[in-house]
Design a protein around this nucleic acid. Sequence first.
DNA 1: AGAATAGTGTCTATGAGACAGTATGAG
DNA 2: CTCATACTGTCTCATAGACACTATTCT
Lengths: 253, 253
Amino acid sequence: MSPYDPSAFPPFAVTVDLVVLTVRRHALCALVVRRGEAPFQGRWALPGGFVRADEDLAAAAARELVEETGLCVHDPGSPEPDNGAHLEQLATYGDPKRDPRMRVVSVAHLALAPDLPAPKAGGDANSARWAPVETLMSQEGSGREDEPPAPLAFDHAQILADGVERARSKIEYSSLATAFCPPEFTVGELRRVYEAVWGVALDPRNFHRKVTGTPGFLVPAGGTTTRQGGRPAQLFRAGGATLLNPPMLRPEV
Amino acid sequence: MSPYDPSAFPPFAVTVDLVVLTVRRHALCALVVRRGEAPFQGRWALPGGFVRADEDLAAAAARELVEETGLCVHDPGSPEPDNGAHLEQLATYGDPKRDPRMRVVSVAHLALAPDLPAPKAGGDANSARWAPVETLMSQEGSGREDEPPAPLAFDHAQILADGVERARSKIEYSSLATAFCPPEFTVGELRRVYEAVWGVALDPRNFHRKVTGTPGFLVPAGGTTTRQGGRPAQLFRAGGATLLNPPMLRPEV
DNA sequence: AGAATAGTGTCTATGAGACAGTATGAG
DNA sequence: CTCATACTGTCTCATAGACACTATTCT
């Protein structure tokens, strides 16, 4: 058999799974859905679904994101700051035994979204909710009654860990942290995003000097807000610069 | 239809494609094979093949790498420095029209190898060769008769570009450049790897101070060599450190 | 007034980049 | 000898981190 014979190939199912991250109440949270059917019935899982026959992978991921959150994907070309999310491919998971029913290859995607009111349950899941990644990634689950316990279904714990690590490293050298913020935000709000994603405290003064001193990162939006209390803070929106050079340093030495 | 019904899914073929990079004669080169059959018959393409029914994605990539180059994949756990290559997943390409015959999702992998004598032709390709990425990535191909012309088959030009970009950025903050070197190498040889991959000239003295001053990056192997001419240089092997902090800065501002 | 957050200035340690100068081989 | 490469040392400039200080709001 020629390895390129198109009539002799093992059939695979291809899905997209989504790691949707947001920052809620100073904590990095991921969107999880409760599975309504076997396998792993009743367990929490990442949202996802089959790629359709004539659908690109990115389109499938964007479709699932809309179905689960109502978020539209931000088009990098369009100038207007819709409240769309950032979406990028994460990695592909294809262990032959990752789904007990059949051979499924899942192309995981990472989405970063600003804080949303509440997730709406999609048609293909009993319920959906935001859960702190700290809870989801701990072996035991939290002791609290109202939090979803680990472990996630399938290999979703690994996918989530990879997505969180991608987000944590990517905000170092890119302006991606603004994807967690509303269209207009203050320096303090952006700093709290970094602190929530990295789980560390940053010096507010050095942070302010760093982000306002990087050309193209932030552009003044013209107003001020006092929604955090204290002295009114200038509002910014994300500038055109996507790469941060020199990068924001993650304190951890 | 439930989107999770395992009996109702569109069938996909899943392949792995390989971006195999090495440094030959001060140039970053990629392994390409000439296609022996339609589509794109006679054109150059990245090596690759179908994932088998019970095979993990990484295993399929490692199998293809052995078939094409004879290189075994370096197991990060084993201490002995076999001349294995570095292998990692790159990205997945699934445009519905990327293969005119059928729906094929390709999980591309990136392999970094030391300089090899000559590629052996695999069973599923007429011929294989190393080609400078500069030639492969230019629109026109080189004017020289003995070089493979662009463009590559399928979407392999995009995959190659993504692989090259991954390699270029990853040697900044990791010790991955040593994957291009033989088990024992000199500081100058490692510098020439950086220069070839980035296409820039680096100050030999500052480079030497940087790499020898980073703990765990290089460990002395005990001997010296004079294979580059000039004063004999100390031989090193790659140390245990995989992350470079602070990173090697790519001069380009 | 006191608390909280925003924003500026100043000092210091670290490291990158530039480059002088010495060491040791091949021809 | 010259030439090529290896390696060390020194200077300067940029910047991260620490932190004093002022500004402006709310309760």
